[in-house]
Design a protein around this nucleic acid. Structure first.
Lengths: 354, 354
DNA sequence: AAACAAAATGTAATCGATTACACTACCGCA
DNA sequence: TGCGGTAGTGTAATCGATTACATTTTGTTT
């Protein structure tokens, strides 16, 4: 540290007084390295960019200088020059949704392995925020980003600039420009509903999110299974995918004189809300009402009875998305891929045979 | 879109063939705006930087050009010039820890309001990753960052470069360089333990994380309460703060011939693990063994019986940290503040009076 | 109308890297 | 010896903004 400060007197940089003086009284630049090593900045860059022809001897001199100065290349400057950065974006509705929490972590891990960092953005299913963040992705020169758009935004996504690689996750978007990683939601909804029916439930209500395309698809599977068994939907709601709304809606549902014998929820926040409501009504799961949903969470297996659900391979979704993104960053012309993964039915107590 | 493309023919930018051609065939620069508006780049900058003296008439001409070209200033270039960016970092151990999930969201919200974006980093309590990410904070020219360091790293933090504003959260660090936002952990541990004792529990085991400084402090409070009631710790473990370790340790604990009548856990991951173990042993909460912990989670209130815990004001912690950070960004010389917040005891079924 | 101050705008340096292009030095081969 | 080729290195333009300083325009006062 001390030696670094002493070195500063040699720095070529003029300390423009307009810059806050606390800022980088340190931070040697490539020029300083060049000076110390007795070479040109081009050579330093070549050594560090590991692409090029340099004598072993100069390489060593440069590396010594680098070490001596504790030099680190300025990513901003590099990014400005090459019009790219080692950053990817992750734009999702809410990182607190356990599904996205897991995705976020998987993406960060995969990015880390490639030396990339992750810009995290929560859109709250708000198209305005979505637009703002897409613009930010541009402005930050991200190499690409992973995006889970609302229905409304997805529709107009194709009218946006396509110069940045995008991978869409979780939700279908009608564009041929981007890769996608999706769950087979219709099948998942179908399987989950069939499971309920097989276990003797007949009056099945549905709580569906109204923001993404996943809910309608899961609903399609739900309807299909019901129809195949000559059952009618007992009731259904399209509501904001939040615990609060799940609670309110389920509460109203359960306070009717004619109650459903099972509640199908299209995501884990609604599941949590519904469970709160069931508890609030002092009803028993599954005797009074069964409950099923999506996404494995910390609590899904811990509540009593544990919740039956379709688990999504979150780790795999995150990884796949990141890998597709890197593929596309490498080769932006390769034709878009859609990867569809299968969910896993985890049957537990909340939907036990009646 | 079409008009934008047509405009490209006017761009002053020479399209260096070395850049991938798919990249920014669009993206007008400040020069293009200046040309269209018939002014110099300085004037454009002045209009957009809203700091300066410009005629209303020129302002309008520039704004028209901006709109016409769909111009957005290049943040990278700006960042290079002013040696700062509208980005802050968030460096925590694992975003999947519900505490940090909430913090992350609160920070992102607070940053968003100020027009900042958030770089998210997971360190996994790994000092090497921590160091790497601190360096990244430099390299990305973040305006500052919020950091929850491991014990080991916290110790040497003060030897690091102090040119970037830092706010430490959740964990104590022995430095006078940074602001901190902390919970009164000793009091929290004390209160939680007292609550157990008051409700009739005597053989209280402790499961503590071994990565951060919070666990030892909560343990201090635990010990203090025990001592005041002439109780001895029934057993205690310092383990990695993960569900798996919580499960394993609790399982071993419960399989002993002499079981504790209560388990005190120092964070929600350990709580979840312990609960799994209790379930695995087919024991009843709280009749066979009580369970208490930290951090309100989605599931804490949903399991049966619901978990008694100390809730941290996560929203407030995140907000306060971000605000302190912005204060320090504005005035890097102001002397560091430490904000200590109180947790709230939420007594529920898992520690009911016996 | 002249003189000067104040306001508006332009010119060009700068931030820190990358890289096309130019140049030198040296080698091998005719 | 002379010539072409190649490997190693340096020079300088460039990325897109900001801003000190220079210059021009405008307005005010006598």
């Amino acid at each position: 540290m001390i030696s670094l400060i002493l070195f500063n007197v040699e720095f070529s940089k003029s300390f423009s007084s307009l810059l806050p003086k606390w800022y980088n009284l340190l931070m040697p630049s490539i020029k300083d390295v060049a000076k110390i090593a007795g070479v040109s900045t081009a050579t330093v860059s070549r050594v560090l960019g590991n692409n090029a022809k340099v004598t072993e001897e100069t390489r060593q001199r440069v590396m010594d200088a680098v070490e001596h100065l504790n030099y680190r290349p300025n990513l901003i400057a590099r990014s400005l020059r090459v019009q790219k950065s080692a950053k990817i974006g992750l734009v999702v509705s809410d990182i607190r949704n356990p599904f996205f929490t897991e995705i976020g972590r998987a993406v960060e891990d995969a990015a880390y392995e490639k030396g990339y960092s992750v810009l995290m953005c929560n859109t709250d299913e708000n198209p305005e925020k979505e637009e703002m963040y897409i613009n930010l992705m541009h402005d930050e020169n991200v190499a690409g980003f992973i995006f889970s758009p609302t229905q409304q935004f997805g529709a107009k996504l194709s009218t946006f600039d396509t110069s940045i690689p995008i991978v869409i996750i979780d939700r279908v978007v009608n564009t041929k420009q981007a890769d996608m990683v999706l769950l087979d939601n219709v099948a998942a909804g179908y399987d989950l509903t069939n499971h309920l029916i097989e276990n003797g439930y007949r009056k099945i209500a549905g709580l569906f999110g109204n923001a993404s395309t996943t809910a309608p698809e899961r609903r399609r599977g739900w309807l299909k299974a019901l129809r195949e068994h000559q059952l009618k939907p007992f009731a259904e709601y399209a509501i904001p995918p939040k615990i609060k709304q799940g609670y309110d809606t389920a509460l109203a549902l359960l306070n009717q004189s004619d109650r459903p014998d099972a509640i199908f929820t299209s995501n884990s926040l609604l599941t949590a809300g519904a469970l709160q409501a069931i508890r609030g009504c002092k009803l028993k799961v599954p005797d009074d009402v069964a409950l099923v949903g999506f996404d494995e969470t910390t609590w899904g297996a811990l509540v009593d009875p544990p919740i039956s659900l379709i688990a999504q391979p979150t780790e795999e979704i995150g990884r796949t998305a990141t890998e597709l993104l890197f593929q596309r960053i490498k080769d932006p012309t390769r034709s878009p891929k859609t990867v569809i993964l299968k969910g896993t039915l985890i049957a537990r107590g909340s939907s036990a045979k009646r």
